[in-house]
Each structure stands twice: as structure tokens, then as C-alpha cells.
Measured scan of single mutants.
Amino acid sequence: RNRTTFSTFQLEELEKVFQKTHYPDVYAREQLALRTDLTEARVQVWFQNRRAKWRK
């Protein structure tokens, strides 16, 4: 699988949710996936990576 390149819009949407919660539930991830045209799995992995970055 190739690396996912996120658009500016997608990143803004993802970051917006991350500001509210670092652990969105499955429903929130599904909604975000639909809004950003990503799969729920991509959204989940983005949050994992974003939390790792945030901890540093």
C-alpha cells in the first residue's frame, strides 16, 4: 500500500477533531471518514500517528 497523501482540507478536519479529543470513538471516526473521503482505517491510523507526534 502506498503512503496516503492528505489534502489541506482533510488535515484541517482531522486536526479540528484532534483538538477536541485525542481518542475519537468509532462513530466520530466514521463521520470524519465520510466527510474527508477517507476510510475509517486511515482515520484511525492518522490518530495513532498524531498522538505519537503529540507525545514527543
Rank of each mutant, 00 (worst) to 15 (best):
A33V: 07
E40V: 12
D37N: 06
L11N: 12
E15L: 01
R42Q: 09
R50I: 00
L14Y: 01
Q31I: 07
Q44H: 13
A41P: 06
L34D: 11
F9G: 15
R42K: 10
A28K: 03
V43A: 00
R42W: 05
R55P: 08
Q10G: 00
Q10A: 11
V26E: 10
T39K: 04
E12Y: 14
A28M: 08
L38K: 08
E15Q: 01
Q48D: 07
T36E: 00
E40Q: 10
L34N: 10
T36S: 04
K20C: 07
E30R: 09
A33C: 14
V17M: 12
T21H: 14
L14H: 00
A33W: 01
V17N: 09
D25N: 04
F47H: 02
P24H: 01
A52D: 11
Q10W: 01
L11I: 04
Q31T: 09
T4C: 15
T21V: 07
T39Y: 02
W46C: 03
Q44L: 12
E40A: 08
E13A: 04
L32S: 08
Q31L: 07
Q44D: 09
H22F: 06
F47C: 00
R1D: 15
E13V: 03
F47W: 01
S7V: 04
V43N: 00
W54R: 07
L34E: 15
R42F: 04
Q48W: 05
S7F: 06
V45Y: 14
W46R: 03
N2Y: 10
T21W: 05
N2T: 12
E15M: 06
T21Q: 09
Q19T: 15
R55H: 07
A52P: 01
H22M: 15
T5C: 15
W46F: 04
F47D: 02
T39H: 06
H22G: 03
F9D: 12
N2A: 08
Q19E: 15
T5W: 13
F6H: 10
N49Q: 13
T8M: 06
P24K: 00
T5M: 15
A28H: 05
H22W: 04
W54A: 12
E12M: 08
H22I: 06
A52N: 09
Q10N: 01
W54T: 11
E13Q: 06
R50S: 11
L34S: 11
Q31P: 00
Q10M: 02
K16G: 07
D25G: 06
K53W: 06
Y23P: 00
E40P: 11
E12I: 03
R29S: 05
P24N: 01
K53D: 12
A28Y: 03
Q48F: 04
Y27E: 14
A52H: 07
L14T: 01
R50Y: 01
Q44V: 07
K20S: 12
P24V: 02
E40W: 03
F18W: 10
Q10V: 07
N2P: 07
F9K: 13
E12C: 10
V17D: 05
K53S: 11
V26I: 11
K53F: 09
V45R: 06
E12D: 15
F18H: 02
R1Q: 03
R3S: 15
L11Y: 03
V45C: 09
R3W: 09
R51M: 05
K53A: 15
E30M: 14
A33E: 04
Y27F: 13
K20H: 06
W54H: 14
R35F: 05
R42G: 10
A33S: 09
T8G: 10
E40R: 03
R3I: 15
Y23F: 09
Q19N: 15
V45M: 09
V43C: 00
R1N: 15
Q31A: 14
H22R: 08
R51C: 04
R3V: 05
R55V: 09
F18Q: 01
L11V: 11
R1A: 08
F18R: 02
L34A: 14
A52F: 04
T4H: 15
V17S: 10
Q48E: 09
F6N: 03
F9M: 13
F6S: 05
T39R: 03
T36Y: 03
T5V: 12
A28D: 15
Y23K: 06
T4K: 07
R51W: 01
Q19V: 08
A28Q: 10
W54V: 10
V26D: 12
D25Y: 02
L14C: 06
T4L: 14
E13L: 03
H22V: 05
R51T: 01
Q10E: 03
E30F: 07
Q19P: 05
E15P: 01
T4A: 13
R1W: 11
S7K: 11
R50E: 14
R55N: 11
Q44M: 11
E30G: 09
N2G: 08
H22Y: 02
N49L: 12
E13P: 00
Q10S: 03
R50T: 03
N49H: 05
E30L: 08
E12R: 07
R50N: 04
H22A: 04
W46G: 02
Q19G: 10
W54G: 13
F6K: 06
R1V: 15
E30A: 13
E12L: 05
A52S: 11
V43M: 05
L11Q: 08
L14F: 04
A33R: 10
S7C: 07
R1P: 04
K16N: 08
V17I: 11
N2E: 12
S7W: 05
Q44S: 13
V17L: 14
W54I: 09
T8C: 13
R3L: 13
E15F: 01
V43I: 15
A41V: 09
N2F: 12
K56W: 02
E13S: 05
T8Q: 13
A28C: 13
E12F: 02
K16A: 10
T8I: 08
T8E: 11
K53M: 10
V45K: 07
